[in-house]
Nucleic acid binder design. Structure first.
Lengths: 184, 184
DNA sequence: ACAGGCATGTAAATAGTTACATGATTCG
DNA sequence: CGAATCATGTAACTATTTACATGCCTGT
């Protein structure tokens, strides 16, 4: 029973209470998205596979007259989720186009390197703001007993703050070395 | 002319001097790998496509009797690389299985959450060591004129140090809340 | 002679995104 | 009534990894 990592996101998301594919997507989008995304194209087929494997169970749960299926985790599913949680994590990936551009910035004239860092910094600052906007909801949920989503959210905030600060530091370093306009 | 991001890694890697696919892979593996990886399965086909598009040019450069093709960037390729460097970066991805596990750690008994953080911390500490081992080479190259690869390498070191420290902090926080063994 | 590194490539599988199609319901 | 949101799904595409195949060269 080899599950892909996205399957575990789904198992985790239905582990507290039954959810529809649509709800799972929405949950992912305002929580794990920052370190583990999932699209409809993955969620719906995966829910079917998990149901076939007996790890989740679907049940009709229409909202008014609107058709809707919610999936609940089964005992086997819970076991699979726990087994996975007990394994040391093995996927650590980062794709940062900004760092890639910075890596090659030597091919540009000197004064064009700082703007790369500026874009990166702005992006990180915007991310911090978005995460902070989510924080109150996470605090409320943490008071309800589960502190981990909030802990993870705060790691995101701290990370993005650290990164923004790093960009700023490198920016000033570059600007100190070569002033905006070299007098000719 | 729409290039995928991996194409730019290749363009960047051949922008200083002509390189073979094998060399590009080796370079990526000890530099950009940490934020932008590439496998042979991408590099060789992509080199062909770039050659067809006129952005690089292949030339036979056997080592002794061993067949070998090195690719040099063309004027058009250099232009494409610079144009790309001038666009604000748009890909920012992270896949951290550890954070995902931590996010769902509430389904485990309390005492099983800290080990997740411990694995994460150890991984980050190992990464710091690997990056530090590369640092002297990068310093030497930076003295040769291009400071950016070193700057990027150091961002990796700092990031991993920050992350390891964060894990440590959260670990003690958890252990303070619930001592290893609750006396019964 | 053999191991390890140099060198090039492909096939198959896996992952993941994007865009599209469809249709109901709710709210202003 | 129209827009937004709820809801489910698929097809096509893009990206990426892994494993395999092949073979030469160098150093021990």
């Amino acid at each position: 029973m080899d599950l892909n990592p996205t399957a575990y996101v789904i198992l985790g998301m239905v582990s507290r209470e039954p959810r529809s594919g649509y709800e799972i997507k929405a949950l992912v989008d305002d929580s794990t998205r920052f370190f583990w995304a999932a699209s409809y194209g993955q969620i719906y087929p995966e829910l079917k596979r998990l149901a076939e494997a007996g790890l989740v169970e679907g049940a009709d749960a229409p909202t008014g007259g609107r058709k809707r299926t919610v999936y609940a985790i089964t005992t086997a599913g819970e076991q699979a989720l726990k087994d996975w949680l007990r394994q040391p994590p093995s996927t650590y990936e980062m794709r940062e186009e900004g760092l890639l551009k910075l890596f090659f910035a030597g091919v540009l004239p000197r004064e064009e390197a700082a703007p790369i860092l500026a874009s990166m910094r702005e992006h990180r600052q915007r991310t911090v703001e978005r995460l902070r906007a989510i924080e109150p909801k996470a605090v409320a949920k943490a008071d309800g007993g589960d502190p981990f989503p909030l802990m993870v959210l705060r790691s995101g905030i701290e990370f993005n703050e650290w990164f923004a600060e790093w960009c700023e530091r490198m920016e000033s370093q570059l600007l100190a070395q070569s002033p905006k306009k070299r007098s000719s």
